[in-house]
Write a protein that binds this DNA or RNA. Structure first.
Lengths: 228, 228
DNA sequence: CGCGAAATTGAGAGCAATCAAATGTCGTGG
DNA sequence: CCACGACATTTGATTGCTCTCAATTTCGCG
């Protein structure tokens, strides 16, 4: 592999991202050649509202938050992009500007494919198109679950799920919270105060251990999954 | 048009559904020939959990609810399928059985395309694939909005949005509520009692008028949109 | 008309938001 | 290296929205 590689990050993208998996070698090479990559420091904006939405953005390494500004000026978290996630769903095939912001939460490498290139790719590679529909279908299922959970579960339950997901994503049971509690709160649709209290509550129940301000250890994953 | 028509419902599907729009005449005809159609009475199940998920289901006319059974046996509403909506996202490309139920809420005509036929279509028609990705992208955007709204808005605000959407979907400002209040409650993540109270509240504020038990008239759409 | 389901209404309890204040953390500059 | 300020977090007290439980009332349908 990597017979055509001249760019490590681009290779990462092609390997990491679901939609590019199970492509032919030829298609894989084509994709890698069309990808441009860029590095962002923690806090930098990957894109902002008003930017033209003309590229699919893939997180090769790192983490970023995608959010909107509500009418009152507060941030409304839409999603967290982890390594391997990509963004640009809706905008990729329309001519609209972006309505949201993406900000790197740590040092982050992203890859981008221009819309025109991506559309050409889709038309020439049925496999890619099918993968794309698959990936979107999975995201839809995940969003449906998230919606249901938001509508039916308590904050404590949602926080427990979030911790489990985060731990699973990092493949560790002891990890730094990647978001400030304010951001976790926005993400889960609650307030920093409540996050603080519920975290203490989970610790009191010995489901997690608060090693430090931001360092969390999951003690009882099964228990967390059963929090109502 | 309708030069090949031998089936009115199938024609409806092809004309109604976004993903089949802007296809070539040849593709359109092919689609119409692959579609099978079926009629369901109100209350009938279109599919149930455990059924194999091997077809894309399109609502040609009518309305259906898609829901899951939670561990406690209660229904969890996932979505309402209106005329022109389709379902089968995630399952269409996997081999999993369905995990949800779809039940007709009124006399409803649906069309179905078998997975194998649909996949062949996608591979032979790049336009269809692009349309499919587009449609999924739109649904993702809608779900993201729904998730954000569920996490940040009050029941009254969500109910107001629901009424606006329903009215817009029916293109009337006076309409029968298509769902029982119990179902609206499940859909919005609340209880029938609260729906009843908030509906009265909206009527007291003269944003809507309760003409009868199920007949609602929207008096102030702008006001509804601003309910917090 | 009469049954059963659906919807309304009322009372009470609980969870989480808000408001307020204290404490902790981190980066900067002296 | 320490002091300072800005911001994040914690903790406490209170309020309010929504759920739950319970009792009617209304509606839909045979």
């Amino acid at each position: 592999m990597a017979h055509l590689a001249h760019n490590h990050t681009a290779e990462d993208c092609v390997e990491l991202v679901t939609i590019f998996q199970s492509l032919s070698e030829e298609d894989t090479s084509t994709v890698a050649s069309l990808v441009s990559d860029k590095h962002y420091e923690s806090g930098e904006y990957i894109y902002q509202a008003g930017d033209p939405a003309d590229a699919l953005t893939i997180v090769a390494h790192g983490q970023a938050k995608v959010f909107q500004l509500a009418s009152n000026g507060k941030e409304q978290m839409l999603r967290i992009l982890q390594t391997g996630d990509f963004d640009g769903e809706a905008a990729l095939f329309s001519n609209e500007d972006r309505g949201s912001f993406a900000q790197a939460l740590m040092d982050t490498d992203v890859c981008q494919i221009k819309r025109s290139d991506f559309q050409k790719l889709m038309k020439s590679s049925p496999e890619l198109a099918v993968n794309m529909v698959n990936a979107f279908g999975q995201r839809i299922v995940q969003l449906e679950q998230q919606t249901t959970e938001a509508a039916t579960s308590s904050v404590e339950s949602r926080l427990a799920s979030y911790l489990l997901e985060t731990g699973a994503g990092l493949k560790q049971d002891e990890f730094e919270l990647p978001l400030k509690k304010k951001d976790i709160a926005t993400y889960l649709g609650t307030t920093p105060e409540t996050i603080s209290r519920k975290l203490s509550s989970l610790a009191k129940d010995e489901l997690i251990e608060k090693k430090s301000n931001t360092l969390i250890k999951i003690l009882d994953a099964d228990g967390l999954a059963m929090v109502e």
